[in-house]
Amino acid sequence: MSVPVTPLGLMHSIYKEVFPIVHEQLDYWRAQAGKIPNDELRQQALASIQYKTFHCEGGAVLALLSGEKLREAVRFIVAYQTISDYLDNLCDRSTSLDPKDFAALHEAMEDCLTADAPLRSYYRCREDQEDGGYLAALVKECQSVIASIREYHITYPYLQELCRYYCDLQIHKHVQIEEREERLKNWFSQHQSALPDMEWYEFSACAGSTLGIFCLISYSLADEMDRQQAKVVHDGYFPYIQGLHILLDYLIDQAEDRVGGDLNFCFYYQNEEMLLERMIYFIEEADKHTKGLPHARFHQLINRGLLGVYLSDDKVFQQKEIRAISKKMIRKSGTASWFFYLNGRTYRRVQRAFPKWFKKQG
């Protein structure tokens, strides 16, 4: 299967090839989540799938890089992203503020990346523990996919680095409010010398994406990875493409995060002008870093797709200032962004018009 290089070709592949497998996999994991004995864990597992399906849909687009191993790539991406969303719910909506608890939970994401890693007691630092084997099954699903990858040792160090960034972010950002900012700043200072010029909250955003991991896994499944390419893909996605991804996520969530008192990295910009300037900078840098990647045009479409999907979200239209910023970003980003933007608006309208059908599809 060839890698799409046009907006229309990409959307055709997404709807015809990728989404059916994503929804099939989500149906399976939704059924497993429904069997969780503990009420709190079951509620959070089901909610993470119900309200964050688009995370799996978006991440699974990178499975198109896996060649004939599309199903295997989607299986990994859906399982790994489902763990990410589930654990995020447990940390966000938990009464626990214990960093040891968050670290123990996220050991699951580390174990996903080692085929023979023994399962650990991921809930050991919290009261709610009985999940009927749900989290362990997700981990084993990821392990079963990577066990089939030849020369996996080439990719593993880069996967491990990106996973460590992600897990550390989740640990630091979910502690008590008065501690989290200082923890994030100290964490940033440990890595700052190896990073391009950016602020601590921008680094945190770059760490919070799973796209680099999905890209590396997909290329590895296609047996197209050597040491040089593994580094190129890592450097292509981290920090700027991943940073663009998460900054867009935080950009559109500002209103609800203010109401909920949640951490939002966009709050730290001095003003809207600075926010827009840095968002455009991340777009430009993300584009620059696609040029050295294999299938460079595909990766540039991913950047444009991120803009279109996030900026077409209904949340944007409920926030006057964000709506204005979004229009400027779309105009700056060219016709491909407009294409994905219009597709995103249409997709959401259809979802609203036929909610029962979409619920059935996942």
Rank of each mutant, 00 (worst) to 15 (best):
P4Y: 01
T6L: 11
S13T: 02
V18P: 13
H23L: 05
D27S: 05
A33F: 10
E40M: 11
Q44S: 09
A47E: 11
A47V: 12
A47L: 13
K52A: 00
G58L: 14
A60H: 12
L65F: 12
G67I: 09
Y80T: 09
S84D: 08
Y86V: 13
C91A: 14
R93Y: 15
D101I: 04
A104N: 06
A108N: 04
M109N: 02
E110P: 05
T114L: 08
P118C: 09
R126N: 10
R126M: 15
E127W: 11
D131P: 00
A136K: 15
C142F: 11
C142K: 09
V145L: 12
Y156P: 00
Q160V: 00
C163Y: 08
C163T: 13
Y165E: 02
H172I: 02
H172P: 00
I177A: 07
N186T: 05
P196C: 00
W200T: 05
C206T: 06
T210A: 12
L221F: 08
D223T: 06
Q228A: 13
V233E: 12
D235S: 10
G236H: 04
Y240G: 06
I241R: 06
I241F: 09
H245I: 05
D249T: 07
Y250Q: 09
D253V: 09
E256D: 04
G260D: 12
F267S: 02
Y269R: 00
M274P: 07
L276W: 11
R278N: 08
M279R: 08
E285F: 03
T290K: 12
G292S: 14
L293A: 08
P294T: 01
H295Q: 14
H299Y: 06
I302Y: 09
L311Q: 15
L311F: 02
V316K: 11
E321H: 01
E321V: 11
K332L: 06
A336F: 04
L342D: 01
P355G: 01
Q361D: 05
